[in-house]
């Protein structure tokens, strides 16, 4: 299999505090890679480095074949990113937001309108096309944000706690969208602290105190830790964490 993310001994220190401490892993093309960990374990910091938003203190990583240290702008061309904070413009309409992000990812102008139309139909948001984003319920906003993140057909999409604060039904629908995206060949790198969502991933890594404590398929992890579900796996690993959750 083709490796789209290769991470070796990646470290990010803020002063003496090592937010991410020598992590190494690989992600294959087309898989859903779950990046789990308690609050403050270093998930977001690691993901920001992989997206080219943050320069590592040491170690190296290749994302979509580009070095995060020397070619962050090349990486940015080839990935989609959905942050923890909802990042669409609330004072723009649904269609204007899509047009804006499509434009800056250099989707050809002619394609934007028809693709927007198709996307809105799929999301069932045709009637909300000209509504301001701030008037949408949170679940719809999140779905829209994900669709915008993959609108330019990136090779990899990074999702930072995409389902925070969303009801279970919408979360379920959200994961269906993620599966649809992987069907078209997109690799999904997702952080979450909902353990039921971990079950939906092809492989998961669990971060504890800035280090990767475990990395395998959910089935293998459950076997290894002799647990019934991912919740138990997580508790066994996170119990010994020294960092307090924030």
């Amino acid at each position: 299999m083709e490796k789209v993310i290769v991470v070796e001994n990646l470290t990010k220190a803020f002063g003496r505090f090592k937010a991410v401490d020598q992590i190494s892993f690989e992600v294959e093309k087309g898989e859903i890679f779950g990046f789990l960990g308690a609050n403050g374990a270093g998930k977001t910091t690691a993901m920001r480095m992989l997206c080219g938003l943050s320069i590592p203190t040491s170690g190296k990583a290749l994302v979509a074949g580009y070095d995060i240290r020397t070619q962050p702008e090349m990486i940015k061309k080839n990935i989609g990113y959905m942050s923890q904070k909802f990042a669409l413009y609330e004072d723009l309409t649904v269609a204007e937001n899509i047009r804006f992000y499509a434009g800056i990812y250099q989707v050809p102008e002619k394609e934007i309108a028809p693709r927007t139309q198709k996307l809105l139909e799929r999301l069932g948001l045709e009637h909300e096309k000209d509504s301001l984003v701030k008037s949408l319920p949170l679940g719809w906003k999140q779905k829209l944000a994900f669709s915008v993140a993959v609108f330019h057909h990136p090779g990899i999409v990074f999702l930072d706690e995409p389902t925070g604060g969303v009801d279970p039904v919408t979360r379920r629908q959200f994961w269906e969208m993620i599966y649809e995206a992987t069907d078209s060949g997109i690799t999904v790198f997702v952080t979450t602290h909902y353990m039921d969502e971990a079950e939906y991933c092809d492989r998961v890594s669990i971060m504890v105190d800035g280090k990767i404590a475990a990395l395998d398929t959910p089935a293998n992890l459950k076997k290894e830790f002799d647990a019934n579900n991912m919740d138990e796996v997580f508790y066994r690993l996170a119990r010994n964490a020294s960092r307090k959750a924030d």
Binding site: E73, K85, E90
Partner: peptide
Amino acid sequence: EKGTIEQLNVTPVS
């Protein structure tokens, strides 16, 4: 403050 600038920083816009 809204976090939209980070979304722009992760795009290829110069």
